[in-house]
Amino acid sequence: MNPTETDIPLFKRLRFVLVETSRAGNVGSVARAMKTMGFSDLVLVAPRCDDLLHDAEAVAFASGAIDVLQGARIVPTIGEALEGCNFAAAVSARLREFSPPVWSPRELSNHVAGDASLYPALILGNERVGLPNAIVESSNVLINIPANPDYSSLNLSQAAQVLAYECRLAAQGENRTQEGVGFHGEAASLAQIEGMYAHLEDALVAIGFLNADNPKKLMPRLKRLFARTQLETEEVNILRGIARQMMRGRE
């Protein structure tokens, strides 16, 4: 990593990703929530609104954050939305059987502000159905905002505001000295980790440990296991080397 990259503040590293958003007004409100807290990187995955960045409702709800709204990028897939990111945090009120580790917004904000090598993405889903399980299972952590258990559903922009606020607080103190953290290698990118999972799955099939026709829940469980480790690039390379050797042994 270039030494100057360690000086990049969280305000420039954190990306907000909205998946299949239905209401243009919610996108405008998220843009406003981001700008009030100093963030600007917004990516929209397959939004369900036409001409979203110029929609009258989106513009009205964005208020003074038109620059964030109209600077947003629209992409067709989550993979494209996460390009350049090496840490993904899925946001959901609904816990999943095979979710990655569950963190609070404060745990997330302290983690990403305290490690300048991380280029994190906060992923928020559709207003009605939330995030698909596949996106949650492939994320590093699942963010659950503590709320009234009898009514825990937050509006999309409300959730974004809570997260942006916590990240701003952490970013303002991100130059604090961390004690006892030891050496950290470069965090693996999400693309590197997904490639490792695919390679490992092929190897497990090759040695007969995984039945491709009846995989059950093995890969989601392995993804959850590895998500707890916060994989580094060198560790991903080691795991791919192991998978490669496993496959050679079956040739």
Rank of each mutant, 00 (worst) to 15 (best):
M1W: 14
A89D: 08
L204R: 00
P3M: 13
N140M: 06
S189N: 05
F183N: 05
S153W: 04
G125S: 07
V91C: 15
L10I: 13
R224V: 12
V30S: 12
N26F: 10
L52P: 04
L163N: 05
N2G: 00
A81W: 09
Y119E: 06
M37N: 05
L218Q: 02
R48N: 10
V91R: 08
H199Y: 03
A116M: 14
F209E: 00
S109E: 01
G185F: 14
Y151A: 11
I145S: 04
A159M: 09
K12E: 15
A93T: 01
V17F: 02
R228G: 13
I66C: 01
D202C: 01
L69H: 07
A206H: 01
L225V: 14
S92H: 05
A65W: 10
S189R: 13
A191G: 09
D67E: 14
V30W: 12
C49R: 02
G208F: 03
L118R: 15
G25L: 08
L231K: 02
E251D: 14
S63Y: 09
L200H: 00
A31R: 09
R32V: 08
Q230H: 03
R94Y: 08
E83V: 10
L18R: 05
I242A: 00
G84A: 02
S117P: 13
G195T: 01
T21C: 06
P101Q: 13
A134W: 07
V102R: 15
G38F: 13
G64M: 09
A113I: 11
E166T: 03
Y151E: 05
E137P: 03
F98S: 09
L231R: 06
G38H: 12
Y151P: 14
A170G: 06
A65K: 07
P120Q: 12
P3C: 10
L118E: 11
N26R: 13
I78D: 00
D150C: 03
A191T: 13
A46C: 01
L124E: 06
V141P: 05
R96W: 12
N2R: 10
N237G: 07
I242H: 02
S117E: 15
F226T: 04
R15G: 10
A191S: 15
N26E: 12
E5F: 15
D55V: 11
G79P: 07
A89M: 12
A147N: 12
K217T: 11
R224P: 08
S109R: 02
L239A: 04
M219K: 06
Y119W: 15
T4Q: 13
S153D: 00
S157H: 13
E166Q: 02
S117H: 15
I78E: 02
R23I: 11
A116K: 15
P132H: 13
N2I: 01
A121T: 09
T36W: 06
D41K: 14
G130K: 08
E235G: 11
R240W: 04
A121Y: 09
I135M: 09
I74D: 04
N2L: 11
A187I: 04
Y119N: 10
D51L: 11
A227Q: 10
L124G: 07
L210T: 05
E174V: 06
D150M: 12
R73G: 03
I74T: 15
N2D: 07
G114K: 01
V112Q: 11
L18N: 08
S99Y: 01
T233I: 07
D7H: 11
A147V: 09
K217V: 04
S63E: 01
S117F: 15
E80K: 13
E235T: 14
A65E: 11
I135C: 08
E179P: 01
I238L: 15
S109P: 04
V68I: 11
